[in-house]
Simulated assay, not measured.
Amino acid sequence: MHGKTQTEFPLPQSLLQVRLLCLLKSSNVPPPEELGELETYSQALADYIRGIQTAWQDGKVGQGLDLIGNAFEIFHSGEEIDRLYLELALRYPPVGLRTGEDIASTNPIPSHLYMYWDCNPPEEIRDNIRYHQELLGTRFTIFDRDSAAKWLYDHYGREISEIFRKVRHPAEGADLLRLYVIMANGGWWLDADLRIRSLDAWKKLTTGSIKECHLFTTHNYVLHNDFFGAAPSNAIVSNAAMMALVNTFEHCGLYIAFKTGPGVLNRAVSRAIYNALQSHRPLCDLQIDDQHRFHETIEEYEVSYKHLGSSWHSA
């Protein structure tokens, strides 16, 4: 049905790579002639499909990662390629995401928790804020919209502060804030509708995190941006902050999770993995734990505003 021209959207290469990926997911072999056709449109897309095939069907994960290379760069941040790339990297010991646990960073993550609610939090969020204030005392900072804009103005200048105030959706502003706060101060970020399970859980996390950046992945390899930690000036968080700002200007209508949310963390990690593979050095300063480890520290609880169509926004 597609005319196979570069003026007809979706582009033929987009549909073809989706078809071939679906064949791989169903344990079928992509037809060589279709892979060849995809290569005429985009070498990077063909390398992506061949890399996934090599890893999944031939069991050669390292070779698959090499074939994929940095093909993720032709996609928007947060698209499926970032998740599949991370999944492969976690299965490949030389990347170092599951090795080197005893090597402590010389730039540790500060034991401080940050949180945000734009304005007028409902009672259940006020209770959660009080809970963390009592739990952590001076090691906890809560921002609202005004204090966040002032903090950004003081630390990054007028332009970033104004971008924060003018974003299309409050979630985008919260996403920008978390990246810039952790990039400047280091520490841990937690959404206001999540809570640390206990002081013991907090101590276990903060004393056990010996890397410069500590992330958690969901079961389908989307990195959590609702809870993560990093040291000041961490390269991965800095790259994610840059990506979020670029997306804000160049892809203003992009899905928020891809534009400023978890997608920019996934893309920053994809870049870090690619550079580690290119330099043949493991990512010793990055720790990525799974959803089970996330739930050992973090409790997700029901909040009524999510069921009321309210405009409240946590971060």
Rank of each mutant, 00 (worst) to 15 (best):
P110W: 15
I196V: 03
Y131D: 12
A148G: 09
F140V: 00
V222C: 10
I182W: 01
L223P: 09
G229Y: 04
N225L: 06
F164W: 03
A184K: 13
E250L: 15
I129V: 15
N128K: 10
L177D: 02
P232V: 12
D144W: 02
A148I: 09
G208C: 02
S198K: 04
L179E: 05
T141C: 09
I210V: 12
G186Y: 07
H132C: 04
A230M: 10
D193H: 00
R168W: 01
T106P: 00
F140P: 01
L176A: 10
W151V: 01
F249R: 15
L113E: 02
T138M: 06
E124V: 11
L215V: 07
A148P: 04
K150C: 07
I236T: 04
F228I: 13
T138S: 13
A244C: 07
S238R: 08
I125P: 02
G173Q: 06
D191N: 14
F228Q: 10
H169E: 14
D193R: 00
S209A: 15
L136V: 03
Y116Q: 12
E159I: 11
A230W: 09
L199S: 00
C119Q: 14
M115Y: 08
F227T: 04
G229E: 04
Y156I: 12
C213Q: 03
A244K: 02
L179T: 08
S209R: 13
Y114T: 06
S209C: 15
T217C: 13
T217G: 11
N239Q: 15
S198N: 09
G137D: 12
E159H: 12
K150D: 12
T217I: 03
S161W: 00
N247W: 05
T141S: 14
T206Q: 08
A231M: 04
A201H: 06
E134R: 15
P110K: 14
N234C: 09
H169C: 08
T218H: 14
K150S: 12
N120D: 14
L177P: 09
I236W: 00
R168Q: 03
A201Y: 09
P108H: 10
G186S: 07
E162C: 12
G173N: 03
E159T: 12
